[in-house]
Amino acid sequence: MKLRFEDHSLRLRLSEAEVAHFAETGRVAVVVPLGLTVGESLTYALERADSEEFRITHGAGAITVKVPATLAAHWTSTDQNGLSATLMMAENQSLKVLIEKDLDCRH
């Protein structure tokens, strides 16, 4: 899974295998080591949520994007390539969230 930050946006791109894993388990995560100890890492994850809204949680070296279960089910079981939402964050700043399938090109 690829994570990209740009201006006021966060983008996750999942491989076919990661999309399948997310469909099956409701969660996919990546841990990036940023130091010499296990505690010095960044974990970013995509989770299926019971809520009706996109959410982002963060803290203690982790960022989690939570997607409504109904949207997640449709996205993983169809040809739909992406999901997006604009979230209002602290101090009235918006964050655009985009989740995409990073599928191999087929000729």
Rank of each mutant, 00 (worst) to 15 (best):
E40H: 05
V31A: 11
E52F: 03
L46N: 00
L10T: 01
L14I: 01
G39W: 08
S94G: 13
H74P: 01
L71Q: 10
T25R: 15
D104W: 03
G61V: 00
R48S: 11
L83V: 06
A17N: 10
L83K: 09
H21L: 14
K101A: 04
Y44P: 07
A49D: 05
A60W: 02
F54G: 01
T57M: 06
K96R: 02
H21T: 11
A90N: 04
L98W: 15
V97E: 12
S9T: 13
T76F: 03
M89K: 01
V67L: 06
A29V: 08
S94C: 11
S41C: 01
L46Q: 02
H74D: 14
K66N: 09
V31G: 05
E6M: 10
H107F: 15
Q93H: 14
A69E: 11
L36G: 10
V32F: 04
I99W: 00
E47H: 13
A69R: 15
A17L: 13
E24Y: 08
S15G: 11
E47Y: 10
G59I: 03
A90V: 11
G59P: 05
A20G: 12
V28I: 07
N81S: 10
Q80T: 13
V30M: 14
V28E: 11
E16D: 02
S41K: 03
I99T: 04
M88F: 05
V32N: 11
A73N: 13
K2Y: 07
D79I: 07
F5G: 12
V97T: 06
E91I: 09
F5L: 12
T78E: 09
A20E: 12
G61F: 11
E53D: 08
R48F: 14
L14H: 04
L83D: 05
E6D: 07
L103F: 10
E53H: 06
A72E: 12
L12C: 06
T86H: 02
F54P: 00
W75F: 08
R27N: 14
V67C: 09
H21I: 04
L71G: 13
L98C: 08
L34N: 01
K101W: 11
S84E: 11
L34H: 14
T70W: 15
A60C: 12
V28F: 11
A85L: 05
G39I: 08
A45Q: 02
K96T: 07
L46E: 02
G35W: 09
L46M: 06
V28S: 05
L87E: 01
L36S: 07
L87V: 08
G61S: 00
E91S: 15
A85M: 07
S77T: 04
G39T: 01
A45Y: 03
L98N: 13
R106S: 13
G61P: 06
T78P: 10
L42W: 11
V30I: 14
L36A: 03
S15P: 01
R13A: 04
S94E: 15
E40Y: 02
F54H: 07
E91P: 01
D102H: 05
A62I: 12
E6V: 09
A49V: 07
G61H: 10
M89S: 03
F5M: 07
L42E: 04
D102P: 10
V32S: 04
R55S: 00
S41F: 09
H21P: 06
A17W: 09
D50F: 03
S77A: 13
E100R: 02
E18S: 04
L34A: 14
E40P: 00
L14P: 05
T25S: 15
E53S: 07
T57D: 12
L36C: 06
L103Q: 08
Q93I: 06
